[in-house]
Nucleic acid binder design. Structure first.
Lengths: 194, 194
DNA sequence: GCGTCGATGTATCGCGCCGATACATCCTGA
DNA sequence: TCAGGATGTATCGGCGCGATACATCGACGC
């Protein structure tokens, strides 16, 4: 497949490094603090990702003042290159399934600050329809079920349905807010900052 | 690793086949109807899993009346063997991290009907403390954050926190119900526990 | 001074499982 | 009549998690 379809990590790393240079260990901490509620980043994917990004020239090692280093303490600080910033912008522009699936939506959302309003809206709507389609399929499957389910299965269904419905409602609010915000500034063509 | 640590699929397949014999396609539909809100089972893992279970003798192919088959229509129906039932019981007895992690908890819960009350309780409590520990780490990381976060990041945190808190509350209710149910047969000690 | 324990730090390996894809048959409807 | 959709089995690439292995550091007790 065309490179970089499912790489959630690439966006996560590039996005984090955009704020400030970091080394692997702290990068992971940041990421888990930011998205720990949704997913858990691990070294097993982080370091290979950093290596790959380094090889692509999207990030670079940053040397601290070498005089202060005494014991040759290894601590590799990475920073975004110009190409990396470009790539990040490119990733932030993409509004496709790779943006609104379970694993990736949170990451994309976390960097919405750097995303264009139009793209934000399309991602939010994409996620919403993804969830609604899931609700549909589960509901119809449930309705077609002949045998009566035990109470645990039922409770699991109920809880799952409720969770997803709740997220849909959350998305509805976000979408409404986005729409409102994009129409409010009649005068002035909005700030195309950075 | 000792075999069968992370295999959520094994339990899912064995558990489903315990109800009634099924073939791959329908097995997947069942599973996705049952757990589609939490995860999506795919053929890419289902068929290899079936093959593995078959090789282990935990499931077996079931022949329909061969006279009615005309065109050599392939439709491989699997059923649980005696060993399979044993293995299923074994899996249902295990209350460990492999039971209360995100991907596996739903599957274990879905078959709680066949699980001992004590094991059910331990899994529910394990899941709860898993979530609380996650809440803790994210909350403290958030509190330690110096820089002020943008509104999107904040909203993501808020939503994530709320979702997890909600699940904890759900678990609390379930645990209370389990406790009540296990004490009902005795005269009540008016337990003011916790 | 000495041991140990936890946090910091980089790195790799196995492999479970997903998504996409291919291919074949059956049924339904325009 | 034939296209399209549901049914059905199967494989391949590869992402990313969990476990693990090291190494250094500061803090603590003793």
């Amino acid at each position: 497949m065309a490179s970089g379809q499912g790489r959630v990590l690439e966006l996560a790393v590039l996005g984090s490094l955009h704020e400030t240079p970091l080394h692997g260990y702290e990068l992971r901490k940041r990421l888990n603090a930011l998205l720990g509620m949704f997913r858990a980043f691990s070294y097993g994917s982080l370091y290979p990702c950093l290596r790959s990004l380094l090889a692509q020239g999207l990030i670079a090692e940053e040397q601290p003042a070498p005089t202060t280093i005494v014991g040759g303490r290894s601590k590799i600080v990475y920073k975004l290159t110009a190409e990396g910033k470009e790539r990040l912008q490119e990733l932030l522009t993409q509004a496709g399934p790779s943006a609104w699936e379970d694993e990736s939506f949170g990451v994309h959302f976390a960097f919405f600050r750097h995303t264009e309003a139009e793209v934000r809206l399309r991602i939010l709507e994409g996620r919403r329809s993804r969830l609604e389609e899931r609700l549909d399929s589960v509901r119809t499957a449930l309705a077609r079920t002949r045998e009566r389910l035990d109470s645990y299965t039922l409770e699991l269904q109920r809880h799952g349905l409720e969770s997803v419905e709740r997220e849909v409602r959350w998305l509805n609010e976000l979408i409404a807010t986005e729409r409102r915000a994009s129409q409010e500034p009649e005068q002035e063509t909005t700030s195309t900052d950075e």
